[in-house]
Structure formats: structure tokens, C-alpha cells
Amino acid sequence: MSVTAGAIAPETLRRLVRVALDEDLGGDPGTDLTTVATVAEADRAVVEVRARAAGVLAGQVVWGPLLTDAARRTAQDPPVVELLADDGAPVRPGDVVARLTGPTRALLVAERSGLNLAGRASGIATHTHRWVQVLAGTGVQVLDTRKTTPGLRAWEKYAVRCGGGVNKRVGLFDTAMVKDNHASAAGSVVAAYRAVRSRWPDAAVEVEVESTADALAVVRAGGRYLMCDNMDLDALAATVRAVRDLVRDLDGPDGRVEVEATGGLSLDRVRDVAATGVDHVSVGALTHSSPQLDLGLDWVG
């Protein structure tokens, strides 16, 4: 799989770059004390970004905007960026994924920010790909969640796509999700669903359920996306069967309710979860617990 730069908004990349460089340099334009003291303004270099571990690459799209901004801050020409692998591509230890040529000061200023962002994204893509591989052939999609690093949601969800996963809602604004606290506030899960549907008739609505009875009540009320939270395999399978039977009676053979399993999932049991008939599994660990993929920047000239 290959993911192009069009998959993430250019302004999102520019914002990430600004924040990362401001953090490292103490503002805009900021100062790299060591580099200014040790590297002549006219010095130039060629460096390579290498994978130091096996995984799935993500974050290549950051190098161009990052080096352009670093060069602006150091009052130099932007380095030339040669990407040698696409986001979404598998990498092995030692693979050269990018070659960067230009002013040494700009390259050094950008180094850690670039490796942080690309390593974080590649780690998420690698972890996501493991889930995708385990579920291959089941037809079940791997979804991410809102359990993301503040300020990095768009970047981390992009990384999930690079690994073959599917993005769930972006935030509170684009999809209504009725959870247990909403149900408590409204009096019941069905009352909460009806309140959301009444206030936002055109919005996508997902409803978290913890029992077969709640799932059937929501479907009878019109709900067509269920999140089965922390159900054991027997309960999950029974819920899926009951929901499918009910929808067939209500909506006919073309009726459809999407069912998602969430909570307490692991790689060693997710195929068993898929066998219950769910359409999706959502995994918060894709973004909150993925280890960084080790990438390095090596001087070659």
C-alpha cells in the first residue's frame, strides 16, 4: 500500500512543523545554540534517513515542509528532499528512505523534529499493520479512536491509514457517539439516542451498548451503528445474531446495522472476535500505545 501527501492536509503539516520547531528552538525563528556555534553558515551536507528496525513507514510527507521551515529560520535555501520510499511501504533495518541535501545548519535544526514525527507515525503504522495482518481475510476493519496525543490527532490518524487501518470519527463534532455517561444523563441508552437524533437529525450516530437487550432496544429505536463494549465472545456472538435477525424483520433483506467490538481487544484473540460476525474492531492502543519505530539520520557527505 502507498499513501500520498494528499492524504493529509498541507496546512496540518505546516502546523505540525511550526509547533515542533518552535518547541526545539524556543520560538520563531529561534536559535540552535550548538549548531550556530559549530557550523559555518556556508557549510552543506548530504544526509540519509535510515530505518533501524523493520516496520511500516509513515511520515515521509513531513520532510519537505519541515526542511523548508528550518531553512527559513536559518535564512538559508531549503534543502533538496529525495524520498526513496512511500508512506505505507514496508522497511527493513538499514533501508534508506530519504536523502536530504542542503545547508548543514538547516539539516541539523530539522533533524530531531523530523525523526520524532516520522518515528511516531511509523510506529503507529507498524502497529496498525499487525492488526490488519491478523484480521486478513475476515472482512473486519481495524478502526482507531480519539485516544490520541493532544495536537497530533490528524498526524496519528494519518499514520493509522498508512498501516492499513481505518479512521473512525475525528472528534466530537463530526459524529455523535452515545456512551454510558450520556445514557446515564438521559435516563437510558435509548433516550440518549433519541435525544441526539432529535437535536441532530442528519448526523451520523453511534451507540455504545453493553448487552443484547440494549442493542435490540437501540435498533428498534432506529439506531444503525452499535458499539459492543467489553462483551465476552458468547455475548458478542449472541448480540450480533439477534441484531441481524431483528433488522431482517424490520428492514427486509437489504437492512443493515453495523456492529463494532471495542474494549479489551488483543492481537491473540481478535480473530475470535471477528468470527462473531462484527464489522469492525476499534483499538485505542493503535495511537496511545504504539512504540516509536527507530529511524536515524546519517551523514554521508
Rank of each mutant, 00 (worst) to 15 (best):
H288W: 08
E258D: 12
A37L: 15
T276E: 12
P253N: 10
G264Q: 04
Q60T: 15
L117W: 05
V196N: 06
D234A: 15
A238Y: 09
G252R: 01
T276L: 10
E48C: 10
H288D: 06
G223H: 04
T101E: 13
G123P: 01
H280I: 15
R44M: 14
V3E: 11
T35E: 12
A40N: 09
W63C: 07
D69A: 15
T12Q: 07
A70F: 09
L246W: 10
V273C: 06
V39Q: 01
E206R: 01
P150D: 12
P150E: 11
V278F: 08
R220N: 08
R224E: 08
P90F: 00
A237M: 13
G123R: 02
L135E: 05
R224I: 13
R241Q: 15
A242C: 10
L107W: 00
G264R: 00
R130K: 12
R199K: 09
A242R: 08
A159F: 11
G114W: 03
V109P: 03
L293A: 04
A191N: 07
W155C: 05
S290I: 03
S184H: 14
S2L: 13
V189R: 02
H127C: 09
G27C: 09
Y158P: 05
G163T: 04
L13Y: 03
E210K: 11
R72P: 11
A5M: 09
R161C: 12
V39F: 04
V39W: 06
G114S: 08
Q292V: 15
T35I: 07
A20M: 08
V170I: 14
V132Y: 09
R161D: 14
E208T: 09
L100V: 04
V132S: 07
D232K: 02
A192Q: 06
P291V: 05
D294H: 02
V207W: 00
A20I: 10
P291W: 03
P93H: 05
D234R: 12
L265M: 11
A136G: 14
V283S: 00
L152P: 00
M231P: 01
L13F: 07
T138V: 06
A217H: 01
A204L: 15
T126S: 07
V62L: 09
G277K: 00
T262D: 04
A203K: 03
W131Y: 07
V278W: 02
V207T: 09
V196I: 14
T101N: 01
R269A: 15
A54K: 08
G137R: 04
V46G: 07
V96G: 03
E82L: 11
L233V: 13
L117T: 07
A5S: 15
V243E: 13
L83E: 12
A195R: 03
N181K: 05
T68W: 00
Y225P: 09
T212H: 10
T287D: 05
L108F: 06
A195G: 08
